[in-house]
Amino acid sequence: MVAPLAVRRASRWQDSVRLLLLLDAAAKPPAQDEVVPAATAGVIYTQVRLQKLDFWVRYPDYLAFELMNEYETAPGEEGLLSLASDILDSEEPDLRRFPMLRHKFGAFEELDDALAPLVERGLIRKTQVLGRSGQKRVVEHVYFLLERGREVARSLVQDAPALEWYVKRTRLVVALVDGLGGTQIKNRQYLLSDYADTPWRQYISPITEQARARLRQLKAAAQMPVPDVAQEAS
């Protein structure tokens, strides 16, 4: 019997820091008439949206594939291909990947453990919106980035410059789907069969080689230089 492959896991600290930086990148200012906790710097709605954004941070090859999708809707935007190339021409898809399980609504991981230290330190607040009166079903999660949380998020890189990658990456992911809700992002991720066909409660597999092959085709069609992988390896 073949033993299952070991799954690379982030530490609780890594998860907490990544999510804080993602909340900082994704949170929008509250509306004027919105009731929010004191000292709220920004709000992000729905756990689905947070999970789907986190997926692209944790799976660089899927993010590169989505950048290529964006490029094909606007072929003149070669900067999108360059971003995908920066990811796929490096070891990033392996070094930065932290696998997620396929759940009923796509990529999923319990967030409570990672968010708890942020709540305890007064960096974020979170709440749940319940269904109609008499129902206990949660219909929406809302996350509030507090001013202290924003200060900490933006000072982290000064103390740990290696976190600059996460700052840039979370901002790229958020910019890619700015204005879209969690369900819309989920539907986009489901368009890729490797993702959609993953059995429930199984880890979503990487698509690095598939993404690299597609990148070579698109760069060749755009007459962009294609790295000679064999020569680089020698």
Rank of each mutant, 00 (worst) to 15 (best):
T127G: 12
V139M: 13
D197H: 06
G106D: 00
R137G: 01
I207Q: 01
R148Y: 04
A84Q: 02
R154P: 01
D178Q: 14
M100D: 09
G131F: 04
L146S: 04
Q184F: 13
L115E: 13
H141T: 03
L172P: 09
D94P: 09
S133G: 14
P206A: 07
L172F: 12
E151F: 04
W200T: 07
D197S: 06
D113T: 09
E164G: 05
S193Q: 14
Y166K: 03
V139N: 04
D113K: 06
I204L: 07
R150C: 01
Q135G: 08
R148H: 07
F144S: 02
R201A: 06
L130C: 05
R125S: 07
R102V: 05
A162T: 02
Y190H: 15
L95I: 10
L67V: 13
V167M: 10
I87C: 03
R154N: 03
E70W: 12
E140D: 08
R132M: 06
G131E: 14
K136H: 12
R148C: 00
P206F: 05
L101G: 03
R201E: 15
R150E: 06
Q128A: 14
V138M: 09
D178S: 14
L156C: 02
R154F: 05
L81W: 01
V142N: 05
T170E: 00
V157E: 02
L115I: 13
A84W: 02
G122W: 01
R96W: 02
Y203W: 08
A196S: 13
F144L: 04
R171L: 10
S133Q: 14
E140S: 12
I207G: 01
F144R: 00
V129G: 10
D113A: 12
D113N: 10
R201C: 07
Y195T: 05
A114W: 00
R137Y: 09
R169Y: 06
A160F: 09
K126P: 01
R188M: 14
L118Y: 01
R154K: 15
R201W: 03
M68G: 00
D112L: 11
H103M: 10
V119F: 02
E78V: 05
V139T: 09
L67T: 08
F65A: 06
A114I: 06
Q202F: 04
F108G: 03
S85V: 00
T198Q: 08
R169S: 05
E109F: 03
F105S: 08
G122K: 08
P93R: 13
E140G: 05
P99Q: 01
Q202E: 10
